[in-house]
């Protein structure tokens, strides 16, 4: 049986891992390569790196992080943040990442999904989507970009379906309302998107305790769950989360 994945997310700025609430007030919390190594050893199923500098001149720093991670971490990882064309995708993949995550760039230029999927395969292209609760939208959620600062006219469910049609192999769905709160994932949003699309959905935003992770699998129908603060500050380990999932009879990789 396919096991539910626990994915650790690291926001990287100028080569350092940072964490802020709702994309504001970032603080330095460590070396991304060392942290990646620790999560790998603790049993993380996958890692995600978001380059939140995402300016052209700092791209090289991120590529170096990707290379160093790839040389010692033998689980899949994806990289997102400011990747706007096929040549930038290629550079990140050649440095050793498995997948590329596109978010704001795909909203501005959706054909980047088609081009990426055609060139590197559907499994390489992940849609990162930030959704904000908004009763005026058909699905009840609006797509926002730039970490929630800019609203788009896209409906969350419609955009997810369009992105799958264009060729994404996975969706990382981040709830702006839940992000950084540690009150739990937004289950309604996660379930709606996961049931609407044919590709795996990774729930993101709001995890505070291991029970939240079990919840988003059982009630949110997620295929994978992203965790950040709950493991970054030493409150819990990936093993704690997996033990809780196992206790709730959620299939999970327990030997590594």
């Amino acid at each position: 049986m396919l096991e539910k994945r626990v994915i650790v997310c690291l926001d990287v700025r100028d080569g350092r891992t940072t964490k802020g609430v709702r994309f504001e007030g970032n603080v330095d919390i460590g070396d991304p390569v060392e942290m990646a190594r620790r999560y790998y050893e603790e049993g993380a199923d996958e890692l995600v790196f978001y380059d939140i500098t995402a300016s052209a001149e700092d791209r090289g720093i991120m590529i170096d992080v990707v290379r160093r991670v790839a040389s010692q971490i033998f689980i899949p990882f994806s990289v997102g943040g400011g990747i706007a064309d096929v040549s930038a995708m290629r550079e990140v993949l050649l440095a050793g990442a498995e997948k590329i995550s596109v978010n704001s760039q795909a909203v501005r230029n959706p054909s980047i999904i088609d081009e990426g999927a055609r060139r590197f395969g559907q499994q390489c292209i992940v849609l990162g989507m930030d959704a904000l609760r908004d009763p005026s939208m058909p699905s009840g959620y609006r797509v926002v970009i730039q970490g929630g600062r800019t609203h788009t006219e896209l409906d969350a469910r419609a955009w997810a379906l369009e992105a799958v049609e264009r060729g994404v192999g996975e969706i990382v769905l981040n709830s702006i309302d839940a992000d950084g709160t540690r009150d739990g994932y937004e289950l309604q949003l996660t379930r709606m998107i996961s049931e609407a699309v044919t590709v795996p959905v990774v729930a993101s935003g709001g995890a505070g305790v291991p029970a939240h992770v079990s919840e988003v699998f059982a009630d949110g129908r997620a295929d994978a769950a992203l965790v950040a603060s709950m493991v970054h500050y030493g409150d819990y380990t990936v093993s704690d989360i997996k033990a809780e999932m196992h206790a709730q009879s959620i299939p999970v990789r327990r030997r590594w």
Partner: peptide, 15 residues
């Protein structure tokens, strides 16, 4: 099969 109620691609860890 797309009608088996499972996501495609088969992505993740399996026995």
């Amino acid at each position: 099969p797309s009608d088996a109620g499972e996501k495609i691609p088969h992505m993740g860890w399996n026995r």
